[in-house]
Simulated assay, not measured.
Amino acid sequence: MSLLDARLAKSAEGGPSFSLGNRLFRIVWTFAWLVLARFTPPPLHGWRRLVLIAFGAKIGARARIHASVAIWHPRNLAIGADTLIGPGVRLYNQGRITIGARAVVSQRAHLCASSHDVRDPHFQLVTRPIILADHCWIAAEAFVGPGVHVGKGAVLAARGALFTPALADTIYRGNPAVAIRPRGTSSNEVNIG
């Protein structure tokens, strides 16, 4: 990714964090998603997968991605087979976001793979990848922060905010999210949809 030095780009004064090529690609991408996918009917998941793949995303078979999903950069996105990305989900993937197979990211959840260096007076952007393992469930309006790895079968409850790694087969809730109990599924036989 073409991340610029904040000191030279004057990011704290409104300058860009990414190269001109990156910004032009995102303009084309945003327009393409609006025209080709944003207003498609719910059953056209296959068409939306093709649009994403054409722009560099890695999308598994039968993944269902709703038309109202906001994706910052498709080349920074990998979604496994049979995964559901619900209505209004925001994948703010300035850094890479990888979502495993048979996972669910519910309506209006937000995954953010970047932040700024709080110690830097120039406001340097820092990207940190998010990884959701197979069979995870990120519930409605939940937030997953930069650099978080969510273990296989873990659940983040509605409106939870996760900033640290989540153990496999564990349910988390709250802000900041804390483990509340095991999910109680066999890690080999999780069935969420």
Rank of each mutant, 00 (worst) to 15 (best):
L167W: 03
T127A: 08
R183E: 13
G88C: 08
V178Y: 02
G100A: 11
R128Q: 15
F18M: 13
W72M: 10
H73F: 05
I192Q: 10
H149M: 07
D117R: 02
F55M: 07
F123C: 00
W72I: 11
A158Y: 01
A70L: 04
G174T: 08
D134L: 08
R183F: 09
H135M: 01
G184I: 09
V118A: 14
T170A: 03
G193D: 05
W33I: 11
W72F: 12
N188R: 14
P41A: 14
A57M: 05
T98Y: 02
A166Q: 08
N191G: 03
A61S: 15
V150P: 00
R75A: 11
P16L: 07
T164L: 13
S115E: 12
G21E: 06
R173F: 04
V144A: 07
G80M: 10
L156N: 03
A37T: 06
K58Q: 12
I130E: 12
F18Q: 10
Y92A: 05
L3H: 03
A70T: 09
V69H: 05
M1L: 12
E141W: 00
G80E: 10
L132Y: 01
I131V: 15
T170K: 00
V150W: 01
S186D: 15
A140C: 07
R7I: 01
C112M: 13
S11C: 03
A154W: 02
A37Y: 04
V178N: 08
L132F: 02
F31Q: 07
W137I: 11
I27G: 06
A109C: 04
R90H: 07
A113V: 04
P176H: 02
R23H: 06
E141T: 06
G21S: 12
P87I: 03
K10P: 00
H66R: 15
G145V: 05
I130M: 13
I138C: 05
N175K: 10
F25S: 09
W47R: 08
H149E: 13
G147A: 13
L44D: 05
S106Q: 09
N175F: 03
A157L: 10
N22R: 15
T164H: 14
S186M: 09
V105L: 12
V89Y: 02
L84P: 00
A161N: 08
T98H: 06
A9G: 04
V126D: 08
G174E: 07
A57S: 11
T164C: 09
R96Q: 12
L52M: 10
G56V: 14
R62H: 10
S187A: 13
L91E: 08
S187D: 05
R96N: 08
T127K: 09
K152F: 01
L44E: 13
V118Y: 14
G147N: 12
P74E: 04
I71L: 03
N93F: 04
L24A: 11
D5N: 13
A67D: 04
V118H: 14
L167S: 14
L84H: 07
H122I: 00
V69W: 04
A78R: 15
D134Q: 08
L111M: 14
I171L: 09
S68K: 15
G174F: 03
N22I: 05
N22D: 02
H73M: 12
